[in-house]
Design a protein around this nucleic acid. Structure first.
Lengths: 329, 329
DNA sequence: GTGAAAGCGCTAACAA
DNA sequence: TTGTTAGCGCTTTCAC
């Protein structure tokens, strides 16, 4: 592959001029521009990003941290991030941390040693201390999971209120025995959604029963099924279930099916995330939809702004309750 | 962030020595090594990949081309690719082409201008002509989709035989009206699987009816549902359906449910891919499982070998028929 | 075992 | 409008 010098020689100009043609960074006379473009074409020249990046000390690569590829929740967000990034000449590197600190370190180091320009973290298990250290000298944006009152900008929804609305919807349907399948409360979103769950109950004078709150290990289908098995085991099985993710809700649905019970007649179920599967289950799943794609775009734009040195503000996005068969009367 | 010169100065050595300590590329006396390591720690030094990559003219970045994030089929493969790559100090860049030639170009250019060292393409819509051009000077491996008799190495399964087995399974269950939900036959895998479908029928003296072969536009749930609606519309609705992907099969399942028909009693269904959701449907879905994770690892190892300049050979992997409720008697 | 120096490919400051 | 030159941070000869 030819380099800029060879192009310059072939065109009979200096490499600086070739660079100027390439980047439109200073006026070049039409004749020389044509000569240069001809040489570029003839040599099949493509500028090396390696040289350019070293010189500009940027990589135009953004890291997107997610705990696992297997949660479909992230897909649309990633699409949003990618679309915005690509159209701003940034590429994104999808980083699966597996909630593994070692992996996390690999990715943090990529930023430190200039292989990436910034990070969008969607990983609720991320090491916040290290992230703050990194944030001192590098650009970081939090997506979905965030740190209240912290200095790292984030984009998220009002998890407390969204959970409140979901549970309230179940209450209005006449339920007062409402199970809550939550994930580990070390995650902020889990704590927030629990608050929303409790507020809805209290406002309707329904006592909050600890045995109706189940904490899962992960957010796989299996975890949801296991939670449901637990609810079946206790004496007072709920007549409605709110799960903090669609994957959990779908697992619960499956388990209810296995028991030959009917949704929503015997047990109503509502999830969270509006993943594409949620419309394919039988019955279809009610859920809370976040504006995934928009959140992704927003986060990307915030990050790129940060990289450019601008100040950015955190944002709270809207969400929507989606009623489907699993909570119809 | 400190650079190698500052470390050298602080340690009282030359930058060459620091580099030698960093890369273990030549013997360094213990005392100087300790001095250097001390300086590195004190300055919190991390070598810049930008400089290193330019010097070594490599990026240690691999591109993984997939048509869309939203097909869960790719997840485990990507995990395999990523695990192998990371443990060999390569990072992977997941590239969603959206079957869009422009996007494809962006990614091809990354390889041309040294921003990436090679490509694993899982995109059946990829522009083969351009890919071959690229393959002349760069390392490429095809995964799942491949080019028979071409010069680009690939890893795949025997699609013809896998389809044959799936259909044969339906025949053994007593079906002789077997619908086939195929994707566009511009894809090699689709043509191969059709061959398998036809071979199974012919071997059992079941005539191949064109009206029982439906070609979808995409491989989303909706496409499967649409295919099933078509089968319901024709006079002679099949009693069993083989879909070339689980997503299609799940869409079909949903549509059968909507018709108040029972799977497998009224219509048996078998898919392809063994995505995680296939075990959560009601009934659970029979399918063909490819060794996704292993295929990913294998492809990554082949690509990295190629980059190193070694010759690599294409491989055919095993697959497995997974019988679940949707095809039980 | 270690250092000096060149150079990977590019861009930007300065000079002309 | 264009060329000269320095230098981004690193590794690797080649001397010593």
């Amino acid at each position: 592959m030819a380099n800029i010098q060879e192009v310059a020689r072939k065109a009979g100009v200096s490499s600086a001029t070739v660079s100027r043609v390439l980047n439109n960074t200073a006026p070049v006379s039409l004749t020389t521009r044509l000569k240069v473009e001809k040489a570029i074409k003839e040599l099949n020249y493509e500028p090396s990003m390696l040289g350019r990046n070293l010189r500009n000390s940027e990589s135009r690569l953004l890291l997107v941290l997610i705990p696992t590829f297997s949660n479909p929740y992230y897909i649309e967000i990633i699409n949003g991030i990618e679309d915005y990034s690509l159209s701003n000449n940034y590429n994104i590197l999808l980083c699966e941390t597996d909630s593994n600190p070692e992996r996390e370190n690999i990715f943090f180091n990529m930023v430190k040693n200039k292989l990436a320009d910034g990070i969008i973290s969607m990983d609720p298990t991320v090491n916040m201390k290290k992230l703050y250290e990194l944030a001192e000298r590098h650009s970081i944006v939090l997506l979905s999971e965030y740190d209240e009152g912290g200095s790292i900008p984030y984009v998220t929804i009002d998890h407390e209120q969204a959970a409140y609305k979901a549970v309230n919807h179940l209450i209005k349907l006449g339920h007062n025995k409402i199970g809550f399948i939550n994930s580990d409360e070390k995650f902020l979103y889990a704590r927030k959604r629990r608050e929303g769950y409790e507020r809805a109950l209290k406002e309707s004078n329904i006592p909050v029963e600890n045995e109706w709150i189940y904490h899962t290990e992960g957010v796989d289908f299996q975890d949801g099924a296991q939670a449901m098995r637990y609810f079946f085991k206790i004496k007072n099985t709920p007549t409605a279930v709110f799960a903090v993710s669609d994957t959990l809700a779908i697992g619960a649905l499956k388990e209810i099916n296995n028991k030959q019970l009917k949704v929503p007649e015997d047990i109503a179920v509502i999830g969270f995330d509006n993943i594409s599967f949620s419309n394919m289950t039988n019955p279809t799943l009610s859920t809370v939809a976040q504006p995934m794609y928009e959140m992704g775009k927003k986060a990307a734009s915030m990050l790129i702004n940060r990289i450019k040195g601008n100040d950015v503000e955190s944002v709270l996005m809207d969400y929507e309750l989606i009623i489907r068969e699993s909570t119809m009367r």
